[in-house]
Design a binder for these strands. Structure first.
Lengths: 141, 141
DNA sequence: TTTGTTGCAAAGGGTTTGCAGGAGA
DNA sequence: TCTCCTGCAAACCCTTTGCAACAAA
């Protein structure tokens, strides 16, 4: 479900980047994970010839710019990364196991229009972070 | 408007803390600012006998626990602090001047119930960050 | 007097940078 | 061949910690 919404492999070439094993590895790791990962976790999971940590940092930064990944600061104050496409969406994260789901719509539009009237602001952008318990953890709890 | 919603002075005593000039200074600085401040900015604005940076860090941590302040990670990846009360609310921030408004309701409840059905998650908590242009900046732009 | 707080200085740790060698195209 | 990218090591910088002196109660 979530996979079918994710574009094939982000095209490094089309984005003007060279296609290197390190970049493919990072994208693969993000692709294969169903929860946000720290930079170090991504690094540890990279195929065989483990790359340097700076390379992971540098590329994650570019991937975020391209909209292929997103950084999330958890309530533990640790930065983690998730793959995502560039459409508007939000992440719903399980507080027990860390698993995430991507949510396409947020149904906020009407509320935002109302808030604009109240506040005098023109709202151009928003970020919504959702936390809860996934089905499996609720059942197991 | 926003001021009247803010509780008098957070009671250090009632929270089991000693009343020190450093704490009062930090609270005063947060109180007087209409935008999020970095730890260093708070420190610089503290009255006369400037305290140590560690003291600012230590107290901000406690104030956040008490619900008197909130930490916000901006899109520039820098942590800033805003005063707030402990009721559920959100911050609306101007992308040009940084001024913020506190928004009491978010009108998300119905959408959240819908997302719970779609995702199978039980949503327990959410954080909504709103960005836009305030009235003044829109007029001046 | 008792105990929580502060200030200083040092340690910590995640992130960034410089630069030379290496590999895409 | 020409750049871009990577790896290593060092530098950075924000944040935390240890500890002795201090001050609120």
């Amino acid at each position: 479900m979530a996979d079918s919404a994710f574009p094939a492999t982000p095209s490094l070439r089309a984005a003007g980047m060279r296609q290197t094993p390190q970049r493919e590895g990072i994208l693969r790791v993000l692709q294969d994970s169903d929860r946000p990962l720290t930079v170090e976790e991504i690094w540890e999971r990279m195929p065989e010839r483990r790359s340097g940590l700076p390379t992971v940092y540098r590329n994650l930064e570019r991937f975020v710019q391209e909209g292929w990944a997103e950084s999330i600061l958890g309530s533990d104050q640790v930065m983690r990364f998730v793959r995502c496409d560039s459409r508007h969406h939000h992440h719903l994260q399980c507080e027990r196991c860390g698993r995430t789901a991507e949510v396409d719509a947020c149904g906020l539009e009407a509320s935002l229009r109302h808030l604009e009237e109240l506040s005098g602001f023109t709202i151009t952008r928003h970020q919504l972070l959702l936390f809860g318990l996934c089905r499996a953890c609720r059942a197991g709890a």
